[in-house]
Design a protein around this nucleic acid. Structure first.
Lengths: 222, 222
DNA sequence: CGACTGTTTGAACGATTTCAATCTGAGTGG
DNA sequence: CCACTCAGATTGAAATCGTTCAAACAGTCG
């Protein structure tokens, strides 16, 4: 119906039954905006004026400690929403990992659209729940997986999120971005890629294209 | 007004302006229930029939990996809510860390109360946002803090959450509970307590009563 | 062809886990 | 009242994993 066919593939199964109301709102009232690689879209603590849906490209959602260390919570891609459970101020910064195209709508347009719209409220609530679930999965990775398996878990989730092109998946982010997401140094990320290749868990074509090997995936299923 | 004076102290500042609607609902329609230490209140994946507010005692919210490892996301105490952003099924297990008293209300009573009640909807949304923020703080601890500071960060947050009694704070949970929360082994938790004592960051009275030392707190403020 | 950014690799060091032993306090039964 | 038991807590020593610091490599843009 709309032009979001490939976009919706990044959504979690949770959204399957209700997805649509928010997409429709962005399709109807979203203003197209662009941002260059490296540009900061929104900053933590700033007041929210608009909320966004990514059309193409990738964004890292992150925050910084007093010591200047960066924690990347999420790499948002096509179809993903930015700013949703937030009230009043952004609770993270969003920075373009690649050139990005997004649709924006004013926050009061969204709030108004949500009033008395049970479907949209429910969609928002599911979105919050999925955010929490994602953070908790992430927490388990950091707490229990050694670095190599942590990276593999990420690669699997990233592929499953729908970023597959043909038989290989392209990583839009650098080793340092991954390191700040996975709680390790970029050297360790690099070493883990090497180890996963050697172990036969993945194949790579250059530093940014990978494919999970079939037996590794079925191992996970078992 | 109600009997929740000391309970509300565990709430985050975020709630300050809107807190009340949900508390009032629990006060009016909540059924008192009890659970013994060790008892599982709700299990991950099970359908939600009721949601809860803790009156007294502590509960650990956690999930288990296939390998049986446990990740404790949150220790919920007096005033805290259980089951809120969830839709349909519990997304974590809740187990009593101490004997617990809680109020429960049927899920459809809550859903009905939320309909057309903007204040309650807003309160729920803030609650979701606070949950996400808490998970993200937690993620930063695991990614960037070494074990000793991770434990200290927890002790500070736990005291700030309002569990202070007199000048000492009582820890209701075991070293293993803490370990599964902080992503380390219980031996390391124990060693960290010893190190923090030696460093002068905390004082202890038995293994479960602690007080943060004043200069350590002001260090954090600086 | 440099210059630059991002990636890979090596070696020494340090932090945390693992495995094992010991200690403490609360509750129980004689 | 005391010895016994048991769960939880503490401590030690060796082994492992990840970081740090340093150097080399690759691809891209002027």
């Amino acid at each position: 119906m709309t032009c979001f066919t490939e976009i919706v593939t990044r959504r979690s199964p949770l959204h399957a039954d209700t997805a649509g109301a928010v997409d429709a709102l962005f399709a109807a009232r979203g203003r197209l905006t662009t941002a260059d690689r490296g540009q900061t879209l929104v900053m933590e603590e700033q007041p929210i004026e608009s909320v966004y849906q990514i059309s193409s490209g990738f964004v890292r959602c992150c925050s910084y400690t007093q010591e200047g260390q960066r924690q990347v919570f999420h790499f948002a891609g096509p179809g993903d929403l930015l700013g949703f459970p937030d009230l009043g101020i952004w609770h993270f910064s969003a920075e373009a990992v690649t050139d990005v195209v997004l649709r924006s709508i004013k926050i009061d347009v969204l709030e108004e659209a949500m009033t008395c719209n049970r479907a949209m409220q429910r969609e928002l609530r599911r979105h919050c729940l999925e955010q929490i679930a994602a953070r908790e999965r992430h927490l388990v990775w950091l707490a229990y997986l050694r670095t190599e398996d942590r990276l593999l878990a990420f690669l699997e989730e990233f592929e499953a999120a729908g970023s597959k092109r043909g038989d290989m998946v392209e990583l839009p982010m650098t080793r340092l971005d991954l390191a700040d997401h996975l709680g390790m140094t970029f050297e360790t990320v690099s070493r883990c890629f090497t180890a996963l290749k050697r172990r036969g868990a993945i194949m790579m074509n250059g530093p940014n294209m990978y494919a999970l090997s079939a037996d590794e995936v079925s191992q996970e299923a078992a």
